[in-house]
Design a protein around this nucleic acid. Structure first.
Lengths: 232, 232, 232, 232
DNA sequence: GATGAATGAGACTTCATTCAT
DNA sequence: TATGAATGAAGTCTCATTCAT
């Protein structure tokens, strides 16, 4: 490794003190594209979550990622494309977590319970992911809300199928399509509870999931009379 | 003897006229401050709802309102203050509508039903109000999300008290504080259902309210067994 | 005096609290033009002195004067014309004070002494006048600095003549034109000392005048050897 | 081995070129930061001197410098910060010139004489510097006048020490603090004489310095009797 | 590949000034 | 006469994006 010759960057600047911490970032380290893309996305999710889409500046994302702006444009395109990539990645991750938890072979209420629990666990551990997905994607209109709609569609399908299967043995079996609004309501209730949870910490993910499960499975009608739902 | 002000239902027509004859409108028609303020707020709500907070430009708001920018700043302050004023006005209106519908003398489930119905009716008729309140206020962070939080706090208090009263006669009476997460979940479910409704039109406000009522009052557990809730 | 009928101004505004102190200003009092003009000039001098020419707003001047903006424009013209009027009035006042103090019949050093003393007295009592004249007029370029130049011309003429007369009996009598640069230097020294005085209070006008008198009449050369000038 | 930077005397020619070929200048010539900063400061001083702080627009400064506005903001901050940077640079330069001329080993009157001469030489050659420092900084209030005050403080200290030393051998030795008002008066006299000089050209810097020297060293009292001060 | 340097475009905001009552 | 209401014009500042090294 040969020490690089003096480049123009070494010329001392009149305002040198503003560049004090530049040393901490290694210069010109060649990394494979996939690693770079993940660094960028990680930084972008954090910044978008903290600032919101518009206030977030490409400068801040570039500094947070430790990668120069031209690289970001080269790898992930414009700011809008970057934001879409963030939404997609986070949506996939959350869905994957829930799908994995729901499984395939349990009774419907058990599956729902596990899904809800994993949802609360995930959002607790990945605040930024959730903020980007829930708050930002919704507010920025097309084409971003379309990405969110796609996530909701998949989440609702998961739930609709699950609920429809639960009615299969009853005397009023229902189609997944009929369960859609209920699934939508459930998703919204979960989203709202996460927000409430953030402002009222001190509850476990299990506790949160239990509350929601009781509400949607037993209903207020049962709850007010003292009947509640318990995991087995 | 209070002269009745124009109610908010009048505003779309008022604005419609102002846009229609924009070409012929005299440059300087003197109107009292209160009228101008309402024109500005109406336009701002529409533009904020359609574009989002940051993409909305004061230029567009001023054109939509048919009022020059300096007047907007003179009457309602900065863009942020204008946005807050929008949020507050719409939150108050929605809460007022729900409070009026809930009444005071009915059984808890009847009150809840009427509240839900008025919620869906209101959001159907005032898309822009709802979009500003639900989507935009949430995403823009402080101080705007604080305004939304205040609205939620009031909505949740309304519901919490209602639900707590419903349990008064049971052998497990509950305090309003204990009902808070359920209220949060209900609010979120309602918000989410409105979004679903927008993308799946063709349902009445009554039908939407009924669905939500069945979910939260009966619960899936009852629903999957064919038991549902009906208004009397 | 009949209570005025309800005018449009009485219609309560949505933001009524911002107009709380409007009662304190009597409305529509007819005053002779000269009084109004003095009110305006007084306010303008204060505001220009405190803010500077450009940052001073016609709104603030109008509020300080208790007179509406259209009146100001009607009486004294544009902002620039108003500023010129301020400069002229204050310059005339200061010159008048000095001319009165100098008198006509005394010995040259006595005249100079009295002129200097009145200068320090005046600037001490009329800070705003001085600030407008000295600081603002100078910085705003033409046509305002021209007004200041006119004041300086007159002040320098007063001094030049005085100094020239003092040399009349010597063997090297001088013309007033030859004394101009000395007069300019004296004026500048006085202006600068006023600034120093403001930041170093605790001296009397007499003391300040004495210092300047000693400097310009005796010179450092005498001062450093212990010879100084005293009023008789 | 320090490569000599362009000295400030070079700047007028540098700027002259940049304005001359503005039409043909390539859009994006990469120059090191320090060069750009000097270009910006040079242009800013000229524009601030010609227009005054408020009337000067960042657009005009950017055009004069041949550099786009965002670069100005990136390198030197807001308009106010840019103005402060101008004041500081010019104040430092002027002080440096005077300090260099005064030297350390001469008799007090000789030192004063050389300092005054260099002051007039400098202000003659750098009109814009002087205008920014003297006229603009004073009028714009805090925080700008504070910068000027700092310059005055240093200039006065230089003079105070010099004068105090001159009295060391007399029977009434004085402290530098006692000489402050005299120093202030001297500075003001010099500033005012420069203004007079601008409107009455045709005198040499030596001649101007001699006039001031005679005034402050000999005093009118001596002058009117025909005694004057001469350099050796 | 990687980055400091550079900019066109557009946003918010304010102000001097005038109009209509 | 006197004033609240109204606006055209202009200024500061920021940002997404691209060049040239």
């Amino acid at each position: 490794m040969i020490a690089p010759a003096l480049t123009w960057q070494d010329r001392s600047s009149v305002r040198g003190e503003m560049q004090a911490d530049e040393q901490t970032r290694p210069r010109t380290k060649r990394l494979p594209r996939s690693v770079r893309e993940r660094q960028i996305l990680d930084a972008a999710v954090d910044v978008f979550a903290a600032q919101g889409f518009h206030p977030a500046s490409m400068d801040e994302i570039s500094e947070t990622a430790g990668i120069s702006k031209p690289m970001i444009y080269a790898y992930l395109g414009s700011k809008e494309e970057l934001f879409v990539a963030c939404i997609r990645r986070e949506a996939d991750r959350l869905l994957e977590a829930i799908r994995g938890a729901v499984g395939e072979d349990l009774r419907a209420d058990q599956q729902l319970w596990r899904g809800l629990r994993s949802f609360f666990e995930y959002t607790q551990e990945h605040r930024s992911s959730w903020a980007v997905l829930h708050r930002q994607a919704l507010a920025q209109g097309e084409p971003f809300s379309g990405e969110l709609a796609e996530w909701r569609r998949q989440a609702m399908e998961l739930i609709s199928v699950l609920l429809a299967r639960a009615t299969a043995a009853s005397d009023q079996p229902m189609q997944p399509e009929q369960m859609q609004p209920f699934a939508a309501a459930l998703v919204g209730a979960g989203e709202s509870l996460v927000d409430w949870w953030i402002e009222n910490p001190g509850h476990t993910a299990d506790g949160m999931a239990m509350r929601l499960m009781n509400l949607v499975w037993m209903g207020f009608g049962d709850l007010v009379e003292g009947r509640d739902w318990k995991p087995e």
